[in-house]
Amino acid sequence: TLAMEQPWDWSQERRPRAVPTAMAAAWRAVTRALAGRVVIGEYRAVPGVRCFVLAPRDTRLDEGVGALVLWNESASGGDAVLNSYLGDEKVRVVDVFGNQEDAPLDPNYVAPMPDATGRVPVRHRPVRIPITASPIVVEGVDHRLVRFLASIELVPRDLPAVNTTHERSISFQNPWPGTLDAKFFVVSPGGIDAGGHRDRSWIVKPRASRATVLPGTTGILPLTIAYPPSEEAGERPFVIDVEPATDHTYGLIRIQRYMSVGLPEMEMRLASIGLRNGDLIVEADIENTSTGPINVELTAFAPGVPRIKATISSLAPGAHVARRFNYPKGLKTLAGQHVYVSATMPDTTARLNKSVLIER
């Protein structure tokens, strides 16, 4: 529900009159954007950014062109950017006062490489739109394409930090009125970079897959994922090229989704502490997030320094404890480098890795 109590001020003249405020201009721009439209979904392309998809309310007037309404709620400034291909129409950005401009194109766009047959696939250049706390309307988007892109997920998104293969899936929905033929190509991790070098640390199979999905239904494509024991915990981006085809062929569209590497049994937080004498302490705080006691073995790795070990025995559920690793004169010798800490649970293949950057 949108409401505006008083979009005007009273003038200071002898006979006061109502004078529209900047809020009135914003209200006019917003009502123009929403008139005759309905919210059909949310596009969670950027964590911390709210993005709603608008389509014509009257389906008889629906030619597939809609709009997005976006604003930044909690994303950091550098991350609050919508980077996506939004359709064949000219895309415009409208601010709350009705000012319009063409959506800027992504300056970091890289054209696709030729495939094995020498054919260069079509991949459209995405727009790159900075997002602030002030709402904007993005006009000219293909709302069915955006709903399709919004539906693409890697499920489940958690990857346990365990030395084994993991069975996951690409899930997506068909919002078009006709049958959808969708091709997916996992570019990274585990693919070939721009220099032609293959990342052999990750294994993702199959790298290419395809599904035909009826209107209003969900497609599921299985993935098998394996990665090295040295992989750090945290968010891992997956770059995927998608090629949807209905009665319209879109070409390749590059998207990015995330999977989270971690352990459900424990959390580890690292901190670096500098002492006045130039020594460095790296502190590892371990929390037991499981339902039973755990034993943990810690190993710290620093460049040019022998590894240091520590142990934690019978840590109770919900409890946490810290272990410290001391590096004499480490503030100078390790400045600008990372110290890595690996936490393992004996008699299992679980291995949680994290690092901390030593500030100069």
Rank of each mutant, 00 (worst) to 15 (best):
V19G: 09
P237C: 12
G219R: 02
V138K: 08
I312K: 03
E243G: 00
A133I: 01
V91T: 08
G48I: 15
A335H: 03
A25G: 12
V46S: 06
M113E: 05
V122S: 03
K329L: 07
H248L: 12
L221E: 01
G178P: 07
A116I: 09
N72S: 11
A3F: 10
T291L: 09
H197V: 08
V141N: 01
A26Y: 02
C51M: 15
V81S: 04
G87V: 00
G191P: 03
A24E: 15
L68H: 07
I240C: 02
V53Q: 08
W202C: 04
T348Y: 10
G262M: 02
E89K: 04
T289L: 14
I152L: 13
P156G: 00
T59F: 11
R123Y: 00
T349I: 08
M345L: 09
T179E: 10
R28E: 11
R147A: 07
T212R: 08
D58S: 13
E283G: 13
P346G: 06
I273H: 13
I131S: 00
A150M: 09
V242M: 05
D106R: 01
A75G: 03
K309W: 12
P175I: 04
V49F: 02
N108T: 07
V186H: 02
G98V: 03
P317D: 13
T165Q: 08
E232I: 09
V213Y: 06
K205H: 03
G196S: 07
H320Q: 09
G336K: 14
W71C: 12
F184Y: 05
G304T: 06
P328Q: 03
H320G: 13
E13N: 06
C51L: 11
L223D: 00
M23H: 11
R119D: 04
Y109K: 10
S11T: 10
P160C: 15
R276Q: 14
A194C: 01
R254C: 12
A271W: 10
N108I: 06
A245E: 13
D9C: 11
E73P: 01
M268Q: 15
P346Q: 03
S151W: 01
G195C: 13
V213L: 11
T349Q: 11
D279I: 05
R324Y: 10
G66D: 06
N163V: 09
T217F: 06
G336E: 00
W176A: 11
D95F: 03
E63V: 04
T59G: 08
L159M: 09
L82Y: 05
I253L: 06
F325W: 02
S342L: 07
